[in-house]
Amino acid sequence: MENSREANTQDVVVRTVDVAKQYGEGEAAVRALNGVTCEIYGGEYLSIMGPSGSGKSTLFNMIGGLDKPSEGSVFVNSVDIAELTARELAFLRCHTIGYIFQTFNLITVRTALENVTLPMLFAGTPPDEAEERGMELLDLVGLGHRYHHRPTELSGGQQQRVAIARSLANHPRIILADEPTGNLDLKTGQEIIDLLRLLNRDQNVTIISATHDHKMLDVSDRIFHIRDGKLAKIETKEEAIASGHAAA
């Protein structure tokens, strides 16, 4: 286990080079990101920490191809995503990245199972195969028995589990989670964190998670600290434990 993690260190899945993002113009301009250069390794569990407004969600959007940087570049699997057409970006979002949001963002008019199978249909998976895998994924997150319920009939924790199952639909390399436990109580939040950690270990999927949640730090391999749109500090798990942040 430790050995494979060591080997993964060479495998960079996301690289940002001097990424800056400015919202607005002139007087009203906000520089949400101000030159972030970093490398994220395949199979790691990375937490992005920082105070509110420091630019975590903005970085999340840049890495996930949900928005374009004002300056600098983002490489996902060594492809510069600024060079991709709208259609190629859709492909990247479909196959390479899974997204999890603080507000769950399930499609409210579809059932849990349909939410999980939709990305597979976008990927061209035959419907019966998609349904089979959808049920497997719902079982994996412990919601197999609620497959025909719509999001409004599920609790917050259950909705987030469906969102996790959905993010795994097309075997992504990367799962991006923006404060996945932000709207959940302590216990449910811990369950979601444990589930993400399990997926990270078992399926070797890279997890990148913006968070305020100190429970998240215990499971992270590395922690990026963001301050005022800059990458202030990168801590490994060992350093975090030594400095007392992640002491259980």
């Binding site: 949900l66 492909f91 979002r93 997204y99 939709l118 990305p119 976008f122 097309n170």
Partner: peptide
Amino acid sequence: EIGTIKCLGASD
């Protein structure tokens, strides 16, 4: 909802 469906890989 449109933003979410885009995240799932829907084309425009």
